[in-house]
């Protein structure tokens, strides 16, 4: 039963499949088997959050899941955030407010922020900081990121 098995999932709206040993981490499966290298690996023990993806609509660490566990699941990765070439308001806000420098934590940061704004569309700065503490960034001091999430929340609330 340690043999590779077929795994099917929907990623960013597309049906995808591949083969993986049970021990293969979801993060590796996404990156290496499906070629979705936008999801980054930063610690492989669930603290840095760079590998955060949306699993059935909710943010989760892809380094703490086996690919086989996502068989049948619906995933969204950073590659699926912009639709039809149009940036999501979070992406726009990160760009506008210099919410990224090296960009390595950015995919996880955006996925976590996306989930957070769905459960809390009108957060205070303190709530934003608490939510973003799920993802570590070493470049920005979080200053631009916090501003960006606030701005995106404001914009998303006022959007029809």
């Amino acid at each position: 039963m340690a043999e590779p098995r077929k795994i099917r999932m929907t990623v960013n709206g597309q049906a995808r499949e591949g083969w993986a040993e049970p021990r293969r981490l979801l993060a590796d499966f996404l990156r290496e088997d499906l070629g979705l290298t936008g999801t980054h690996i930063g610690c492989e023990h669930g603290i840095c959050g760079a590998c955060t993806v949306l699993l059935n609509g909710e943010a989760a660490r892809s380094c703490l899941m086996l690919a086989v566990q996502a068989d049948g699941a619906e995933l969204m990765t950073i590659e699926g955030l912009a639709r039809g070439g149009v940036l999501h308001p979070l992406q726009e806000a990160f760009w506008e407010h210099h919410g990224l420098q090296c960009g390595f934590c950015t995919p996880g940061m955006l996925m976590a922020a996306y989930d957070f704004l769905r459960v809390n569309p009108d957060p205070t700065e303190e709530e934003i900081r608490e939510a973003l503490s799920a993802v570590l960034c070493r470049c920005t001091g979080y200053q631009g990121i916090v501003r960006a999430v606030k701005a995106a929340a404001d914009r998303m609330r006022s959007a029809p």
């Binding site: 950073i78 760009w95 210099h98 960009g103 995919p107």
Partner: peptide
Amino acid sequence: LKRVEDPRLLTGRGVFVAD
């Protein structure tokens, strides 16, 4: 100025060594 680097990094298209 907003950075030219950002669109690719914001959409998961940056190419790091592991990519």
